Amino acid sequence: MQSTTPAHAPTTAVRLDHTAVLARDRRLSAEFLAAVLGLAVGAPFGPFLPVDLGNGVTLDYYEEREQPIQSQHYAFLVPEERFDTALARLEALGVTYYADPHHSDPGRINRLFGGRGAYFTDPSGHNMEIMTRPYVRP
């Protein structure tokens, strides 16, 4: 495949800046994720309610009440020392976490790639993941 990158393209990496996350109730979903990850919900920005992940990426929660919301997957790399705290927050919220993305192994974590990970569902039905090691890519 021939490259379509212009010769004058910048040498800096392309990074995700923000993404919209559809939610039945933007405040409920944003506050849920912020509580689990130990983050803050930002001030509304137009129709969006942001959660800044602290690495230059913002999740902009957008309320969708008319159409069904298709479940998406969002994975969060958390420091090892914050993983147990996130699990404890899920338990305090009464949210079951799972070792697998299909949610068939409740109350357990995985140990993929030498780290720890868990999956859970947010209030709008999105499949969320916390992990302490990034996946190894070939």
Rank of each mutant, 00 (worst) to 15 (best):
V36K: 04
R15I: 09
T5W: 11
R111W: 10
S104M: 11
S29L: 11
A23L: 12
S71P: 00
E80P: 02
D100Y: 05
L112Y: 04
R89C: 13
R65V: 01
E129A: 05
Y61P: 01
H18K: 12
V21C: 03
V14T: 06
R89N: 07
L49H: 08
R116V: 15
D105E: 11
L112M: 13
D100L: 03
N127W: 00
G115K: 00
N55G: 14
R82D: 14
P138Y: 05
T11K: 12
V95S: 01
H103R: 12
D17S: 08
G117V: 06
G125S: 00
G56C: 01
P134D: 09
Y61V: 04
E80I: 06
Y119F: 07
M128L: 15
L93I: 01
P79A: 14
A40I: 10
H102T: 13
F83C: 13
E63P: 04
L33Y: 04
A23I: 09
A88T: 14
V95P: 00
N110R: 00
L39H: 15
V57S: 06
A86H: 06
P50S: 07
L77V: 06
F83S: 10
H73E: 09
R133V: 15
A13E: 12
N55S: 13
A40T: 13
P50D: 04
V57Q: 04
P134W: 05
D122R: 00
Q67M: 09
F120A: 01
Y97L: 00
G94N: 06
A30P: 01
T58L: 10
D25V: 08
E31Y: 02
A99R: 01
E63L: 03
Y62K: 06
H102F: 08
T19H: 04
P101V: 02
H73M: 00
F113K: 11
D122C: 00
T132S: 12
H103V: 05
T11D: 07
H102G: 11
L53V: 12
A35T: 14
R27I: 10
T121C: 07
D105T: 10
R133I: 15
